Simulated scan of single mutants.
Amino acid sequence: MTELKTVDGYNLLAAPIEFTLQNGKCLINGETQNIVEGTPADGYTVSLTINNRKGFTLPHTGVTPSLWLLIGLPLLVAGLLVLVFRYNRKGGKRS
């Protein structure tokens, strides 16, 4: 069983829960759990309680990283172009 969605403010489970239904019993990680009710004729009901921990979100404290990329990458390219043109104007590499 994999948790796909949770209530806002709570964390998803870190790993799926693997279980086996066998002979009217539920095995979780090889241990028998008494969480199965019902009969083969009426069907079975499995009641599993999962304790989710309340998570937290970091507060928004400034500029988004994409804005830094929009400003920083053109400045980096411009700086590299200036260095290349200066290097070539001086005659480049001399042997």
Results as ranks from 00 to 15, higher is better:
74 P>F: 06
80 L>Q: 13
37 E>R: 03
23 N>S: 13
44 Y>G: 05
95 S>F: 14
42 D>E: 14
78 A>Y: 06
61 T>H: 03
12 L>P: 09
62 G>N: 00
19 F>E: 08
59 P>N: 09
70 L>Q: 14
56 F>D: 10
88 N>A: 13
8 D>I: 05
35 I>E: 14
9 G>P: 03
51 N>G: 12
13 L>W: 12
49 T>A: 12
90 K>W: 01
8 D>S: 14
46 V>N: 02
29 N>V: 00
50 I>G: 06
3 E>H: 02
2 T>F: 11
28 I>E: 15
36 V>P: 01
72 G>R: 01
79 G>Q: 00
93 K>S: 05
56 F>Q: 10
23 N>P: 01
51 N>V: 09
88 N>G: 12
40 P>R: 03
7 V>A: 12
60 H>L: 04
43 G>W: 07
42 D>Y: 02
95 S>H: 07
45 T>S: 07
92 G>A: 01
78 A>S: 07
54 K>Y: 06
67 L>T: 02
82 V>F: 05
36 V>G: 04
72 G>W: 00
57 T>E: 15
45 T>I: 15
36 V>K: 00
63 V>L: 15
63 V>E: 06
6 T>S: 08
90 K>N: 03
24 G>R: 00
44 Y>M: 06
88 N>H: 09
30 G>S: 07
71 I>K: 00
